[in-house]
């Protein structure tokens, strides 16, 4: 049986997502089955459009999605978006793989994405708000069933 790795991606910062996807792609490239469970702010990484606001959402949900977008901040020195811009520039200059590159590779290597249905419910997000990368929509039991026999488990 193949080894397994599971990651809970709770944060929406670009630097934390980079760390998660660096490990996910490396594990998948090492013949491990990798599952990432996206919950709370982590769902921002998978939003199809920047704001993910839809008609069915109530006013509070709309406000939340308007303030917490797919335009990912960084966890230190964000400086209203100047930080992420500088970081992307630096990464490009030093030829480091971007988050987009790593996410494309993760899909190529069959990394499984689970989106937390409870978080989706609270934020008023539905399948239509997410990219096609999401493998399934499920809850804690599905994650625990995957994590139970995984050798590496991270909360990021």
């Amino acid at each position: 049986m193949r080894d397994k790795m599971t990651i809970i991606l709770f944060s929406s910062e670009m630097d934390k997502a980079l760390a998660a996807f660096t490990l996910a792609t490396t594990a998948a490239a090492s013949n491990m089955d990798v599952t990432i469970f996206f919950t709370f702010w982590g769902l921002n990484i998978l939003k199809k459009s920047r704001f993910a606001v839809s008609k069915s959402q109530n006013i509070l949900q709309k406000m939340f999605n308007f303030m917490s977008t797919s335009e990912l901040p960084i966890s230190k020195l964000n400086m209203f978006g100047l930080g992420p811009w500088m970081m992307k520039k630096l990464m490009k200059k030093s030829k480091m793989a971007s988050l987009n590159d790593l996410m494309k590779l993760a899909k190529e290597l069959n990394v499984k994405y689970i989106a937390c249905t409870t978080s989706c419910g609270v934020m008023g997000l539905t399948k239509e708000n997410f990219t096609d990368d999401v493998t399934e929509f499920a809850g804690a039991s599905t994650y625990l069933a995957e994590a139970k026999d995984s050798k590496i488990n991270l909360f990021i």
Partner: peptide
Amino acid sequence: LFCPMPVVKTK
């Protein structure tokens, strides 16, 4: 290229 690209490309 930086980590993880060399091993991912190797794979």
